[in-house]
Design a protein around this nucleic acid. Sequence first.
DNA 1: GGTCACCAAATTGTCAACAATATGGTTAGC
DNA 2: GCTAACCATATTGTTGACAATTTGGTGACC
Lengths: 225, 225
Amino acid sequence: MTEIADALPKSGPPATEIADWIRSQIRANRFVPGQRLVEVDIIRRTGGSRFKVREAFQRLAAEGLLEIEEFRGASVREASLAEVSQLYRARAALEGICAADFTRLASDEDKERLREIAEKMETCVESGAAEQFGKLNGEWHSMIMRVTRNDVIADLVSRLNTPVHHLLFESFYRGDRMNEATRDHRAILDAILAGDPEAAEKAMRRHVENGLQFLTSLDRALFGD
Amino acid sequence: MTEIADALPKSGPPATEIADWIRSQIRANRFVPGQRLVEVDIIRRTGGSRFKVREAFQRLAAEGLLEIEEFRGASVREASLAEVSQLYRARAALEGICAADFTRLASDEDKERLREIAEKMETCVESGAAEQFGKLNGEWHSMIMRVTRNDVIADLVSRLNTPVHHLLFESFYRGDRMNEATRDHRAILDAILAGDPEAAEKAMRRHVENGLQFLTSLDRALFGD
DNA sequence: GGTCACCAAATTGTCAACAATATGGTTAGC
DNA sequence: GCTAACCATATTGTTGACAATTTGGTGACC
């Protein structure tokens, strides 16, 4: 009843918050693939109880983000190139259909906003602001999905993307990749503005598949062949 | 070292097995949407410890199959028609791309096997064996995805389907729906045999969307409008 | 010097007891 | 008869202690 009692009714953050925190750490490349997540460490840093931390681990394991081994605990799952390739194939299908839906459903303001983001990205290319470019790119893609009001697909794509965030983070938007992405975006935008859903879908698919191809070449460059 | 020691080294089934069991119960329509899953009950029926049961709950909640409320435990999540509609949209995109891939990649034996299943389904239509029809239908769809070696997409589609299994179970394959599905399958198969990936994709999409339309009409019939 | 068995520390798995909350029925009051 | 407060029961949330296993290092032996 007192202020104090109201101030500390909870002993710690719920499992979902802990899971969100771990997810954000992975996205920010603080937890890298293969890294072991020690329970005590997470407890110290989140303030959650051991029980809740383990609940969070389970959730993230079900999402495919963590791997749990008997008596060895949780570690950030490493996606093989083969798996990443499959993830991108799924993304191409899902984002493609969203691009088509966007073309049909979006209002003029929506389209204008999309064009604005694309414009900002082009200025990033000129100034070489790779990080900002990546951020805007995320906005661009998620806007297309948000407008079509398909939360399920938006959620799926977001989950599909997480395992490769550590790759996108550092070395993805370097060199020609920004130029290529900009070209792709322009093609998509043109199809949308022309009101051609099928063309928009095809362009979006090609865009995602180009991303995969770039990732593949990057992988070869990093790990040899 | 003795036979006895080998016979009972484990105190109970692991969390993944419990999760699988619950999933199968939901798929078999034994656990229906909205039903509460009491921990003690699951413990009694699976032989797992309370701890493991709760781990299983967390995993299934992350999959979207269960809903966990504070102090009220887990219950089978109820998918709204709006959500089901979105799930089908995603399925249409994913299975569509798989159909196209199948057309490109499948061996002659694969295609022959697909044709055989379709043939069996047609005999089911004649004899009105709805349950068998549904089972074969599952095989048909999963075969298309398995051949393309895209486990990620196969897994996604399987998860997308689970929330509506209770609908498919009872009243889905009645009346004209089997005929319609058979027509769709024939169109898909024709495109595949003709080696036309784009046509196969379109036909598959139409098939999934027909399924959604049927579900929608069924929903209207059941719950009024 | 190298290899293997063994030991101690760290880490995770499991369980049982207790606290907190929801649920359903009962009773008092109108 | 009806509503609302109340209470017993059922159910879930939380914690702590202990068991099982891995891990990294140490020393004996070849």
